[in-house]
Design a protein around this nucleic acid. Structure first.
Lengths: 178, 178
DNA sequence: GCAGGATTGTTTGTATACTAATGACATCGG
DNA sequence: CCGATGTCATTAGTATACAAACAATCCTGC
């Protein structure tokens, strides 16, 4: 289940005090290695991008764990949730709504169709569009999933205090909407 | 580049007022569609996981744009940066340091070797290990990259006020280290 | 109306991620 | 010294992501 934790690394490092080249990586006060004699040392684990990647990987992991009984992925879930909310949207639009590339949506939708959760129809006014709709099975499934989905967020935010959550979500929204 | 912005969606929705099935998705006050008559509506774009994914996608995008002259990816950069800091580490360890799965590191390292930035050696004390080191070209490259890397973070954090940055990074660190 | 431009969806190619299964090697307890 | 256990690295399979290139369609301006 995911990798992203420097805790593991730390334990590892301590467990191998013999490895000459291994140096600590506790965030903040860190020792200088072979090539880091430059000014204002660049510390990888203090960069937004790196932290975002780690946090995202953990969140995905939590999602997978909590939603295990449904065997669904975060994107597949997002697609189903949107279709449930809006009733019927084109593939392209679904992509914009769920922050997925057209090429990516293509694959996600294909897998959802293979599972019988989604079906395609057609738009009489625009032959390019391929409107998507939930099947009965899909509607039933997303209903059950939404009931548990809140737990995913709760679990993910577990390590934070209540007063940290609001600002975090607000900041993330700004970064993501840029 | 990248998709993740509901701004685009919004513009789209407004541009197609004729599409009967399209409903607004402005965050917060949103209308109820076909299947959302449940209590405490589940709003996809308010979930941490979704926001993290969007923010991460944007950050990756920014990285790619700013580091374009180097043609490097975030993970490849992380690997090089760590090797530059520590001198020599095994593949597995590099993975823990950069939050990557062993299988993933394998591919990343393979690509870095193909580019001549990294070379493998061997550990006389443990035949399982495959110590990695930067080549002269790799050392030179990562040096140049680190000089620009700070810009990536700056650009990524652009949409936030200074007082928002600290708390955000702290919160992300907690989520990622869980 | 028709050419030019924009949009939709697909496909291909590259780079992540993670699970699971494997093989080689280490280490430890006895 | 030997087997149980654990670690390192690779490989195969699945699911994202995104760029780029396309075919089929729409829509607009002239």
């Amino acid at each position: 289940m995911a990798v992203c934790n420097r805790q593991t690394l730390k334990a590892q490092a301590v467990a191998r005090p013999a490895s000459a080249t291994v140096e600590r990586t506790a965030r903040g006060k860190r020792r200088r290695g072979p090539g880091s004699s430059r000014a204002a040392a660049y510390v990888l684990e203090d960069q937004v991008g790196f932290l975002l990647r780690c946090a995202h990987q953990r969140a995905s992991d939590t999602f997978k764990r909590v939603m295990a009984p449904f065997g669904i992925t975060p994107r597949q879930f997002a697609a189903l949730a949107k279709l449930d909310d809006l009733g019927s949207v084109s593939q392209n639009q679904l992509g914009r709504l769920t922050a997925m590339d057209p090429a990516t949506v293509s694959g996600v939708v294909a897998r959802l169709m293979a599972r019988g959760y989604v079906a395609q129809s057609s738009d009489p006014n625009d032959a390019r569009l391929v409107p998507l709709v939930l099947t009965a099975a899909g509607a039933k499934a997303i209903g059950a999933m939404k009931a548990v989905a809140a737990d995913v967020s709760a679990q993910t935010l577990k390590p934070l205090s209540n007063r940290e959550v609001g600002p975090l979500l607000a900041a993330l929204a700004k970064l993501g909407a840029a």
